[in-house]
Simulated assay, not measured.
Amino acid sequence: MTDDWTGLSEALLLWPGLEQGAATLINLSENHTFRIDRTDGGKTIVRVHRPGYHSRLAIESELAWMQALRRDAGLFTPQPLPGKNGALVQQAHFRGETRHMVAFAFEEGAEPQVGEDLSAVFLQLGSLAARCHSHVTGWTPPQTFERQVWTDGAILDRDAIWGDWRSAPGVAGTVRSTLDRLDANLRTQLAGYGMARDRFGLIHADMRLANLLVSDGVTRLIDFDDCGFCWFGYDFGAAVSFFEDSDAVPALRAAWLKGYRLYRDYGPEHEAMLDAMVMLRRMALLAWTGSHAETELAQSLHSSFATGTAEMAERYLATGTIDR
């Protein structure tokens, strides 16, 4: 990733200690995420929000839940840092427009990788999901609270949050007809499953490997930027993002369930929907590859993601499972 000191130099004046920091872009997906190397030798993370995605209230709501999870449930969550004016959400010009920005304390750890033995990570990830879900069922959000609602329509409709999957690269011909059948199947299943409080609520919604830090064998959850109201099982679907068709997924599903059930019940009617959640997430990502075509990750997927999604859909529609 390249430096972008010029784009951030003015913005860094908003936080104490960052004024002369050197900015390095470490991630570009929904937002620009920078590591700031401070003059005192320390590091800070600054997230520059994508324009038009979240309002200031929505970002403040994300931070409120993260802080409540740390305070009430004893969970590790990223620590937002106030600016010089005391506010956690700042505004500054970046690349010609005003953007919302948040600074976070830097945390050590490494992103787990596909191909590694992820069983211990998924055991812990299931536990983290359960503890988040348990917390939110008894939590009263602030009076003004705004987060996205990830329903089937919000993911599958033409005006979906992440765009229209029908417009993604490679969606044509037999791929399109297969995915149309999957779309209808998922809507029917989710309507039957319903949105009762034991299965639908505020979730992280993006527990993929890129949003995990592992340090000394402990898995920590970062980046709550997509948190919103959705089915609890969607957190597992998101956990296997971009490797949903791996032969390792059945064992990782079992590890996730084992970890989840250490803290919260997860009955057979919920377990039976996990593969539907994987397919729903896959369709969200397919739409994302089209609407976020400027990112390196989306570009790397354009040649194969739609075809791979259709192959998974054929198997799922025929057998009711994503397993080979």
Rank of each mutant, 00 (worst) to 15 (best):
T2C: 00
L8Y: 01
A11R: 03
L14W: 01
P16H: 08
G17N: 08
L18G: 03
E19L: 11
Q20T: 14
A22W: 00
T24V: 13
L25H: 01
L25D: 04
E30I: 05
V46A: 12
V48M: 14
V48Y: 04
G52P: 03
Y53C: 01
R56Y: 07
R56E: 13
L57A: 11
E62D: 15
E62W: 15
L63D: 11
A64N: 00
Q67I: 11
A73G: 08
A73S: 11
T77V: 08
P78A: 10
P78Y: 05
G86P: 03
V89W: 06
Q90E: 12
Q91Y: 03
E97G: 11
T98V: 15
M101I: 13
V102Q: 02
V102P: 05
E108A: 12
E111G: 01
G115M: 03
E116M: 11
D117H: 04
L118I: 08
L125H: 02
S127W: 09
A130T: 06
R131G: 13
C132Q: 10
V136P: 01
W139Y: 14
T140Y: 12
F145I: 00
W150P: 09
W150L: 08
W150S: 08
D152I: 10
A154G: 07
I155P: 04
D157F: 05
I161P: 00
W162R: 00
R166C: 11
S167D: 13
G173I: 06
G173H: 09
S177I: 04
S177L: 02
L179F: 02
D180N: 11
R181P: 00
A184E: 13
R197P: 15
D198V: 01
F200K: 01
L202H: 04
H204C: 08
D206H: 06
M207S: 13
A210C: 05
L212V: 03
L213A: 14
L213K: 08
S215H: 15
D216V: 08
V218S: 07
L221M: 03
F224W: 14
C227A: 13
F229L: 05
Y234V: 06
F236V: 01
E244L: 10
E244W: 11
S246V: 06
V249W: 10
P250G: 14
L252T: 05
R253T: 11
R253M: 04
G259N: 05
Y263I: 03
P268K: 04
E269G: 03
M273W: 04
R281E: 02
L285G: 09
S291P: 09
A293S: 15
T295P: 09
E296F: 02
L297M: 03
S300F: 12
L301H: 14
H302R: 06
S304H: 13
F305W: 10
A310D: 02
M312V: 03
E314P: 00
R315E: 04
Y316T: 06
A318W: 13
A318P: 12
T319N: 01
G320K: 03
I322T: 15
D323K: 07
D323G: 05
D323W: 06
